[in-house]
């Protein structure tokens, strides 16, 4: 079964350079049967990065994908607090470069319309849009989006596919929140391998709106692959979640 991983942070794999980190990433991908990975961020240190900082992250990722173009896709890290500079960065990394998507993290909640120029530019380039979300029982960061923020964003951009990172972590809530928005995809990555997550997502969203990702290196590949390998869903659904849905989104880039 072909596996593409939506959500991977190679900097956590060790090594002195991006190339060494990616070499270890790909070695473990081979062990675990993963054909391709989407990579972003060079560190978790910049939750609200300046333009100089997000360019530095993206330079790291450009080196990662430069040496492993046949195995890795790059996503550009951008920040809604610097919307104009982020649009320029999308031009640099996606329009002019090899990257295929953008990563939005916790600098500003995605319900805020300041993000719209970023979404519009990414959509115009058919870039995959990945927005981190959590709905933490013990409280979110001030700029951290919830699935409810994602719903507001999706309603403003109904024709733009957007990935709801982590499905809000509290997935029973997150799945419900994004259910009405056909342009929103559920990312399985980065939470504990709690049995029933994938089954509920398939039941409520349909197989075509769910994408496997790991969030390695904070997570292992194992715990996240288990969410699909171990789910009581048809083999066809596993194929869709493991690669077909993501291939469809990335292929749109043309």
């Amino acid at each position: 079964m072909t596996i593409w991983d939506l959500h991977c942070h190679p900097a956590s794999f060790g090594g002195r350079t991006p190339e060494e980190a990616m070499a270890e990433t790909i070695r473990l991908c081979d062990v675990m049967g993963i054909e391709r990975v989407c990579v972003y961020l060079s560190t978790l240190a910049h939750a609200d990065p300046t333009p100089a900082q997000f360019r530095q992250h993206n330079d790291y990722i450009l080196r990662c994908v430069g040496h492993f173009a046949h195995r890795a896709f790059g996503f550009a890290y951008v920040n809604p607090n610097y919307a104009a500079e982020s649009v320029e960065e999308i031009n640099r990394c996606v329009r002019d470069g090899p990257m295929v998507g953008i990563k939005l993290w916790v600098a500003r909640r995605c319900s805020d319309s300041v993000i719209d120029p970023i979404i519009q530019r990414a959509a115009a380039l058919n870039a995959v849009i990945f927005q981190h979300t959590w709905s933490k029982t013990n409280g979110n960061l001030p700029g951290e989006s919830t699935p409810e923020d994602m719903a507001a964003l999706a309603a403003r951009h109904p024709r733009t596919p957007i990935i709801c990172g982590h499905t809000g972590g509290n997935w029973e809530r997150g799945i419900r929140v994004i259910r009405p928005y056909a342009n929103v995809y559920a990312d399985l990555a980065g939470s504990d391998p709690t049995a029933g997550f994938t089954e509920m997502a398939v039941r409520e969203l349909g197989v075509s709106r769910i994408i496997y990702g790991s969030d390695t290196g904070g997570r292992s590949f194992s715990s996240q692959l288990a969410k699909v390998h171990g789910a009581r869903i048809p083999e066809g659904a596993k194929r869709a979640i493991f690669s077909e849905n993501l291939k469809r989104l990335i292929k749109v880039k043309g």
Partner: peptide, 18 residues
């Protein structure tokens, strides 16, 4: 931690870690 976790999680960790 089965059945709270998918059993495959711990099994795959053996493979991933060699």
């Amino acid at each position: 931690y089965f059945p709270f976790f998918y059993l495959e999680s711990a099994l795959l960790k053996l493979t991933e870690s060699g």
